[in-house]
Write a protein that binds this DNA or RNA. Structure first.
Length: 571
RNA sequence: UACCCGGUGGUGUAAUUGGCAACACACGAGUUUUUGGUACUCGCAUUCCUGGUUCAAGUCCAGGCCGGGUAGCCA
């Protein structure tokens, strides 16, 4: 299959980013025999967020577009930090985003192979066991501007290193007693090449290998080998590993030196991670938010975690669309949260059924509507999708409308209900406000209106117009519900930007969470958690997992664009 | 003050590899509308700076400025 065909089948007319450019060129030149193998290599020590999603959408996306495959590989080289629980959560999130891995892999599956390679390096005089304590290794590494100094054990005989390394593996030494180091160059301007540690002693139970090992490979030693073993052609990663690439190359070259069958040497390409306005991506800071109770958990709908965004009501399609539009480059920028919201609205507009709900109810009594009577009206489920059909909607004498939709003394541009003014109730009737009923202190308690029976369905036979259409629910036949309203978690576009000696928590938005009680039309009865709706004229809402048979709970995913509110804010 | 990588509207990316700076979002102004939604129209840039090469430079060269990454037995 030709590249062109492939691309058009995936209907991605977008120009190639610099990574896809390289991959396309490699496919054309036959560099890897036309093969494309990528991988997404998370460490199973936390939940995935939108930043990870950018990475794995590139990994899986590139593989798919060029007829190759992508592995999901857990980088589980540090048993003290990793847990099985996260393996499952990560698999769920990647799958939810719509990706299918070819092989499910674990770095720990390659421990023996890595060990064998390490022994070879020692035999070649390219690695040595160092007895220096950790702090001493740190001190002798030098600084950014000053060279390091060689360890006194650097030139110890190969035989001795071999013996010591074997005994490290056998468990003869306590944690931290010795390490295996690559013998490269203690004066190298790239600090990664100053005899990096390859193995450390860690007497810890591993979530997959149990007690089989008490020495564990360091990331820099392991990662390139994992890619090599899996035949990864394009090892895509973030910018901070640019400085590590020479080390990975050195390791593979060192292994291949004098080897009749060279092992596979993957090509690493780095791209920039991305930042999102009003959002924090650092795992440590997200943990602080959870542990200090600023949010209600890792899947709090305000969190940028995939589980949080899922609970919020974001769709995988919208997230992917957003990531596609953000693009790939080497410039570390900050994407606009508004773009994410746009993508979410865009997808939900096409797919979410419409429903009417009132979040800040104001009672309306239709005084000329017969008491005790009710009727069913037809409502369109989705004007963007004719196949979604219609549903019945109960109408009665007493209704609720949104408090914001009435003003006793309206300004010039206010089109909604006001005394003596006529508006349309969506899919129902034209009504006219006749009387404003207030309590003792002057609060508006209810409105008395009359309706025009001839406008049933919302059209006037005489052709007269109204300036506004309001959403509403029947007081007698609507369902009470709790709605959780979310705002940005931070008030600052860049939450990291803080005055003097303060930390990011000063930027936390105290109003990011608010619960309101409202009413929704009866058609949503029994909706499953994660069901998404548009509450007409309000926004997109999704059923929360806390919802029960007798109490509906919704999360606001994102509001509709609101030019009226925008004008108000300017005034 | 070492090494590596970057710098194009407010934001994020394009520019057939030297040929009229394009797209989306945001913002502003309108049209349509039984959602003040959607859709549609219009507006919004001295390509970080200074020199150089060239008929022609965002693109090539030189110097500068600014930003990011790097000193775990973390990944």
């Amino acid at each position: 299959m030709s590249l062109e065909t492939q691309k058009s089948e995936n209907s991605k007319p977008t120009k190639l980013d610099f990574i896809r450019q390289v991959v396309a060129d490699d496919c054309k030149s036959g560099k890897w025999g036309g093969k494309v193998v990528t991988r997404f290599p998370p460490e199973p020590n936390g939940y995935l967020h939108i930043g990870h999603a950018k990475a794995f959408c590139i990994d899986f996306g590139v593989a798919e577009e060029y007829g190759g495959w992508c592995n999901l590989r857990f980088d589980d080289t540090n048993p003290v930090k990793e847990e099985e629980e996260f393996v499952e959560a990560i698999k769920e999130d990647v799958a939810w985003m719509g990706w299918r891995w070819k092989y499910l892999c674990f770095a720990s599956d390659y421990f023996q192979q890595m060990y064998d390679y390490a022994v070879e390096l020692i035999q070649k005089g390219k690695a040595y066991v160092d007895d220096l304590p950790a702090d001493e290794i740190g001190r002798t590494r030098g600084t950014l501007t000053a060279p390091g100094t060689p360890s006194p054990w650097r030139d110890r005989p190969v035989k001795e290193s071999l013996d010591l390394f074997t005994r490290m593996k056998a468990g003869e030494f306590p944690n931290g007693a010795r390490v295996l180091r690559a013998k490269i160059d203690m004066a190298h301007p790239n600090l990664n090449l100053r005899d990096p540690v390859m193995y450390r002693i860690l007497h810890a139970r591993h979530h997959r290998t149990g007690d089989a090992w008490c020495i564990y490979p360091m990331y820099d030693w392991a990662h390139g080998l994992e890619d090599s073993i899996e035949g990864v052609t394009h090892s895509l990663c973030s910018l901070e590993f640019e400085n590590h690439r020479p080390l990975y190359d050195w390791f593979i070259d060192a292994i291949n030196e004098g080897r009749p069958e060279p092992i596979h040497h993957p090509q690493q390409i780095e791209f920039a991670r991305f930042n999102l306005t009003y959002t924090l991506m650092s795992k440590r800071k997200l943990r602080t938010l959870v542990e200090d109770g600023h949010v209600h958990g890792w899947d709090d709908p305000r969190m940028p975690t995939l589980c949080g965004m899922r609970r919020r009501g974001f769709t995988p399609e919208a997230i992917r669309d957003f990531l596609d539009r953000v693009g790939v480059a080497k410039f570390v920028g900050t994407s606009d949260y508004a773009l994410l919201e746009h993508c979410v609205r865009d997808h939900l507009n096409k797919t979410a059924p419409r429903v009417m709900a009132v979040l800040n109810p104001l009672k309306v009594v239709i005084t000329n509507y017969p008491e005790g009577q009710s009727e069913q009206l037809d409502a369109i489920n989705n004007p963007e999708d004719a196949s979604a059909g219609v549903r019945p909607l109960p109408f009665g004498r007493e209704l609720y409308i949104e408090r914001d939709d009435f003003m006793e003394d309206p300004p010039k541009k206010f089109f909604r209900l006001a005394p003596d003014r006529e508006v349309r109730l969506r899919y129902a009737y034209f009504i006219t406000c006749q009387e404003v009923v207030k309590d003792a202190v002057g609060n508006i308690v209810e409105l008395h209106c009359t309706y025009d029976p001839a406008t049933r369905g919302g059209d006037s036979p005489d052709g007269r117009k109204v300036k506004a259409t309001l959403h509403w629910v029947s007081a007698a036949e609507s369902l009470p519900m709790t709605v959780r309203m979310y705002e940005h978690l931070f008030t600052a576009e860049n939450p990291e930007e803080v005055p003097d000696g303060q930390d990011f928590t000063v930027n936390i938005n105290p109003n990011s969470f608010r619960e309101v009680e409202g009413f929704v039309e009866p058609s949503v009865q029994g909706a499953e958690p994660l069901s998404r709706y548009q509450f007409e004229r309000l926004g997109y809402y999704c059923v929360d997992k806390d919802s029960t048979a007798d109490r509906l709970v919704f999360n606001r995913t994102v509001g509709l664009k609101d030019t009226w509110a925008k004008q108000q804010n300017k005034a």
